[in-house]
Amino acid sequence: MSAPQTPAPAAPAASAGPILSLRDVWVEYGDKIVLEKVELDFEAGSFVSIVGPSGAGKSSLLRVILGQEVPTRGRILLDGELLNPECGPDRGVVFQRYSVFPHLSALGNVVFGLECEKAPLMARLFGTARKAAEAQAAEMLAAVGLGDAMHLYPAQMSGGMQQRLAIAQALLKRPRILLLDEPFGALDPGIRADMHALITQLWRDYSLTIIMVTHDIREAFSLGTRVLALDKRRHDPHAPHRFGATAVYDLALRKSPASAASTAGDTAPAEPTQKIAQERASA
């Protein structure tokens, strides 16, 4: 895996306050309350895992941060400014499935992000501009381990390769935050361990801020610098939908992202817990 050639995105704002803040966020569908009174701050450079039972609003929280949904109440601040309630290039995303475009090769999938930015009308680049964009995309593909698969279509790739491609797509846009929605949920245990190593590596190399929703508690603890557990604080047996979920546990696993990064100088995942988790997962 090659080292990043471009400056890390999160570096300048790392010293100033939280990169993302949720203030009194509620999400309601009709009279069903999904999230209630969510108050969270996300530090730049952190790797936050979100766990919780099904239906506890993990995905709703992610959709709200992504801008795919507008919260019923409350404010979301990105870099101290009110978040635009529409998806945009400042927030990258990798879903469990369908994150890549089946009609484009791996290279085309990654170049697409550059083409949208530089060619608003045609959404296509030609000549030297295309060459430059392809070189940049090829570098990113190499960084996620797809250097030899640049001309394959997603249908010719394994699930793990498709997720690598989805990550490469997202990283090329240098998002302020990378959102992962159960990114490794559909993968084989062995592949999943590889992907854990990859995402840890990228998180360090590119100083990413990652928010990951997962069902896998072990994964949440081995990857994250902070684990949030979403659940309902109160429960009304006669009207279970009238109370929403919020962060019931907020566990900081390491004091700061800097100390976490400093303990891991080599490329292999250094944390013993993570190694154990990976061995268990692949067994």
Partner: peptide, 14 residues
């Protein structure tokens, strides 16, 4: 997911 992903890559409606 594809439509959302495209928007996070900077694509507009057109």
């Amino acid at each position: 997911e594809q439509i959302i992903k495209a928007q996070t890559l900077g694509a507009g409606s057109w």
